[in-house]
């Protein structure tokens, strides 16, 4: 059985154990990187910078981590704070071009079956980042509006409003089939 997060984190905090850190990194970075890509609108260099910054902050903060939440939850919160820093520093890609998205989706539809997950992911990536961060945190990651408010330094009501705008944008941009998914397409083909 592999050591749990707490045992690995203790080794890292106590003695800077590289092997323990690599084990923690490999366990948690795939989810962290996916979150970073979503928050960053698919911008890979931005996501890499976010992941690296989040890990540095996490290791710096390990001695004071009280383990009142899961390590992954704590790490995700750190990443979100780092994302805010990067946005404040102006390290963000251009805002979504919804017209381009609509055109691209139309072309994709005409080319044949589309993987709905890819289109939904891309549509999320193209949301303006204020909408995107709330949508990702609430609808994808499962944070409550109160938690999002605390993480982002906004009112819970603002979070709800941003979420509403984000959902509206996605519904306008995506063909309903992208929400339904391929199962419906398969049903149509066989039925």
């Amino acid at each position: 059985m592999s050591p749990d997060d707490r045992a690995l984190a203790a080794k890292v905090a106590r003695s800077g154990d590289e092997a323990a850190f690599r084990a923690l990194y490999r366990r948690h970075t795939p989810a962290l990187y996916r979150l970073a890509l979503r928050l960053g609108g698919g911008d890979e260099p931005w996501a890499e910078e976010l992941v690296q910054r989040a890990w540095v902050r996490a290791v710096e903060g390990l001695p004071s981590f009280g383990w009142r939440s899961a390590f992954a939850t704590w790490l995700g919160g750190i990443a979100i704070n780092c994302a805010r820093e990067l946005w404040r520093e102006g390290r963000t890609r251009n805002e979504a071009d919804m017209q381009e998205l609509a055109t691209r989706l139309t072309l994709a539809d005409s080319a044949g079956p589309v993987d709905d997950r890819i289109d939904l992911d891309r549509a999320i990536e193209r949301l303006p980042h204020g909408y995107r961060q709330v949508f990702v945190l609430h609808d994808v990651e499962g944070y409550t509006h109160e938690e999002i408010g605390a993480l982002l330094g906004i009112e819970a009501g603002t979070s709800k409003s941003q979420l509403s705008h984000a959902r509206r944008r996605l519904r306008a941009a995506l063909d309903p089939a992208a929400w339904r998914g391929r199962r419906r397409a398969a049903d149509d083909a066989t039925g």
Binding site: P30, R34, E44, D116, R117, V140, G181
Partner: peptide, 14 residues
């Protein structure tokens, strides 16, 4: 909700 739940939760970092 189902479409969102199908989204991948991990990605291979470089």
């Amino acid at each position: 909700r189902a479409a969102l739940e199908r989204l991948p939760r991990a990605a291979a970092p470089p």
